[in-house]
Design a protein around this nucleic acid. Structure first.
Length: 276
DNA sequence: CGTTGAACCTGTTTGC
DNA sequence: TGCAAACAGGTTCAAC
């Protein structure tokens, strides 16, 4: 279930184990999991992993060899994860990539993704930058309040689809969109350009609060999500509306949380969340 | 420009 | 119990 907080948790775990390591082998078990024009896999053995970072909901490992830098980008989709040990994956047949490393405090890496939404991409610097520009707007954790308010006020559509669109804002998915809108008292169908300044400012503050809290909590483990060492997140215990339909609103207004079956389910309190 | 629905996949839950 | 439908963290594309 990797949205921004889960991907950030994955990145932090990976950093602790692979930074400075030498990539020895890169084995692809399913060719169709790799989505890059020409096969760059032969380049990687012998390269050193010098950085791991998050790009939207993607994990990027920077690899350097003989003054040449390339990038292994992994899209996790709905069910993608990186594990330090194959035995942590509940279904070994869905491990699509195996990386062996050498160096201190390192371990193997196993890319597991049962539904196979999400791919691995192998880029050089210009390819990575083109990918970023093609796919991602400003990062939800990094965007300033002014930039965010400007984006929201120039959106004519509803805020729920706005949050899900990575071209507008990168990192938010269905769980966090619902939780953020509830905590900010904004209706999922509110139109961006109808929001008052105070509401969009509160939305920005709430968004970054929720994301930071979720990262600290290790992410949300609804079904599959685990960190690379197998540990679960516990931000699901702090969810207030996601999959809470029929339960009383946590704000104590005595209204029941409603679920709307849209493209992606929306959960909200019809009393607390206002359209403007 | 914005919305909607289907498609891509497998696994689990729900309902009859 | 058994089977089919519905649904799940995401993204892309076509059609309107």
């Amino acid at each position: 279930m990797p949205e921004l907080p889960e991907v950030e948790v994955v990145v932090r775990h990976l950093k602790s184990r692979v930074l400075g390591a030498t990539l020895e082998t890169l084995t692809i078990h399913r060719a169709d999991i790799v989505r890059t024009g020409h096969d760059l896999t032969p380049w990687f053995p012998g390269a050193q992993i010098t950085q791991v970072h998050r790009m939207g909901k993607c994990v990027v490992m920077t690899c350097e060899r003989s003054q040449d830098t390339r990038y292994l980008l992994s899209e996790l989709g709905m069910t993608g994860l990186w594990f330090f040990q194959a035995t942590l994956a509940t279904s070994p047949q869905h491990i699509h990539c195996h990386i062996t490393l050498s160096g201190t405090h390192t371990s193997d890496l196993h890319y597991w993704n049962p539904r196979r939404f999400g791919r691995l991409w192998l880029f050089d610097a210009s390819g990575l930058e083109a990918f970023r520009q093609r796919r991602f707007g400003p990062d939800a954790l990094a965007i300033t309040q002014d930039e965010f308010c400007h984006l929201v006020h120039s959106t004519r559509g509803q805020l729920k689809p706005f949050f899900l669109n990575q071209h507008h804002l990168a990192g938010i998915g269905n769980i966090y969109a619902n939780e953020i809108l509830f905590r900010a008292n904004v209706h999922p169908h509110a139109k961006g350009h109808h929001l008052r300044r105070a509401s969009s400012q509160r939305l920005h503050q709430t968004m970054q609060e929720v994301l930071r809290e979720a990262i600290t909590a290790g992410g949300s483990s609804i079904q599959d999500f685990r960190a690379p060492n197998g540990s679960q997140g516990h931000f699901q215990d702090a969810h207030q509306v996601y999959q809470k339909d029929g339960l009383p609103c946590p704000h104590g207004c005595s209204t029941l949380i409603k679920r709307l079956q849209e493209e992606r389910s929306s959960f909200f309190c019809p009393s607390c969340q206002k359209k403007r």
